[in-house]
Design a protein around this nucleic acid. Structure first.
Lengths: 195, 195
DNA sequence: GTTAGCATGTAAGGAGTTACATGATTTT
DNA sequence: AAAATCATGTAACTCCTTACATGCTAAC
């Protein structure tokens, strides 16, 4: 059963609605993987090639979304989902296997929430919340047990780190409450506004 | 001029005051690299070997810090700084070459602030602050320029990401102000309390 | 006209993880 | 006596970055 890595899933998600060029995909990935990550082309293009080989996407000549001005740009390749790719995306969107997801994996799943059903969204958010809470617990325990003395700077670094995780948990709590008290909550309908 | 990678520097810092076993080093690294990272042994031990080969550290038979109970544990290796290692650490501690440091590199330098002189501390904090501010600016610009419409979830992810960076900047501002208004501010003296 | 952005790729290498392999000591 | 923690290491592999290589198009 072919594994879908985070990057592949993110690309599948980006191509869900319309085809895009590699260059565009990279910019959009910058959003899905948190606004401060930029994926290198050395990573992106080989991944696209693998996806084509796996039959998940197709490379078409040109015509992305915007009407091409007039004539011959350089060879630009628009990628679009195949049926297999769409099927894979659907399968993955129903999968809330939240254990062992790292930050990037969570962000990518989250950015696809508009196409994820309400029950799965809730399971993902709760799964992430409890894993963060567990780690917070473990770390706090560990710090007590480890009586190496820390100077003021090291202590401040720890405090700051723990605070950030606590904030992340609060953020998740807000989202979870929102999901629970939401009126609608299906896939395809948007969460409140545009489309 | 041999480059000192983050991990090597972190280990140098940990061994500054007393020798430690590999196992202990790993636990302490968990603190310096932010309380939520655990380095694997498959990464740690090869690094220690390289450092021994480079003459930065020495592997001694046993006796860490705690008085050994009675007799024969299994071979435990305590690593300690050589003169070359100590010299390298001193050099690195004076280096505020803050451009291109990633999060981990900053954290490691920060955790060594107790042994860094006041001027270098300030340069490091200010360097980090301005890089974060720059990126914040770029990302905000980029988002305006990129008029791909985002659904509510993607927008929330972005908002949260930007907020986190803003908080990081506030944290740095507090630290910078603190450094500026601090009474003392040399290396070796601690920042306020223990030692 | 020159800078910035658009656009596609490859090759080499760095930094880390996982899984494996082994065994002692301490706590429950 | 079982479970957790201490303790050391290797081999294979994954994922990603950097540096290279190329060339067009839009804006200032």
């Amino acid at each position: 059963m072919a594994k879908t890595d985070v990057l592949t899933l993110a690309i599948l998600g980006i191509l869900r609605d319309r085809p895009h060029h590699g260059y565009q995909i990279r910019k959009l990935l910058g959003v899905e993987l948190g606004p401060f990550r930029a994926l290198s082309y050395g990573s992106l293009y080989p991944c696209l090639r693998r996806m084509v080989e796996a039959g998940l996407i197709e490379a078409s000549g040109d015509e992305p979304g915007n009407p091409t001005p007039a004539s011959s740009r350089r060879a630009r390749i628009a990628y679009s989902l195949t049926e297999a790719g769409r099927a894979r995306l659907t399968t993955e969107l129903a999968n809330a296997g939240a254990s062992s997801w790292d930050d990037d994996a969570f962000d990518v799943r989250f950015s696809l929430f508009a196409h994820t059903d309400a029950a799965t969204r809730l399971r993902i958010l709760e799964g992430r919340r409890s894993r963060l809470a567990e780690r917070l617990e473990e770390v706090s325990e560990g710090l007590k047990r480890m009586h190496e003395r820390h100077d003021a700077y090291t202590a401040e670094l720890q405090r700051h780190g723990l605070e950030q995780v606590e904030r992340e948990i609060s953020w998740l709590d807000r989202l979870i409450e929102n999901e629970r008290s939401a009126p609608g909550g299906d896939h395809h309908g948007s969460a409140s506004a545009d489309h």
